[in-house]
Amino acid sequence: MRIRIRHTTSYAYDRPVDYAAQLLRMTPSEHASQRIRSWRVTADGKALARTDDGYGNVMHLFTVARPHQGATIVAEGEVETTDTQGVLRDSIERLPPRYWVRTTAPTAPDDELRSLAREIETFSDPIVRLHRLMETVRARVDYVVGVTTVMTTAAEALAKGSGVCQDHAHVFIAVARLLGLPARYVSGYLWQGGSETASASHAWAEAHVPEFGWVGFDPANNICPTEKYVRVAIGLDYGEAAPVRGIRRGVADEALTVAVDVQPAQAQQ
């Protein structure tokens, strides 16, 4: 399926800010189930210099080193996807699967996560475990917007029993790692077929199973990613895969506007 994406992030400050830097991971990765037909990342209309991180995610750094009161970042392009039942094929992996069992602060286990791991452990086949885990996470954490933040940990989200896709992914990852299964966070886009654009930015998880390799699991929707998913960046947790990490110098209030438009390419003129 061909998917067109336009992701606009605008900042407005109420007073001039001397300096701002935004680290962007907004460029879809390329592998067998996902081909990029066109893509570009611009800020205030200008193309940005690009580099990558240790995992191979494409990074752009957007900096403004003079007093300014706002900026607009646009990531847009067209991606062609194939349904592989969630199995990732021919992705370039710079690190072996065993790397992805490292614990990070947002995915650190607590007693509740450990007891959830013990529940799942009763299934012996890893792929069954992971599916079971995905269902359980969805059942235990309701999809509720606004109760968690980007700082919420897996343990907190599970204790609250509610959260958004980021929290579902963190809980899934934390438990998978407790079971000794390599797992990672994926940020990307999802075409949901409707007109809701706000939720088109999405996050899910991938776990490594010896016989299949990396397999995607979207606990928020309780399915493995299909051709409606566009995979952008990976990381040990949200912080490493976040579309934008930014900082600024100067005292000002910030107004942030994000618009994500995901459409099948055929629907475009």
Binding site: D52, G54, R98, L236
Partner: peptide, 16 residues
Amino acid sequence: EALVLQNPGFEAAMQG
């Protein structure tokens, strides 16, 4: 492998 990959001093950002 784990002593390297799980090491707190290992920094994936240096890969490649």
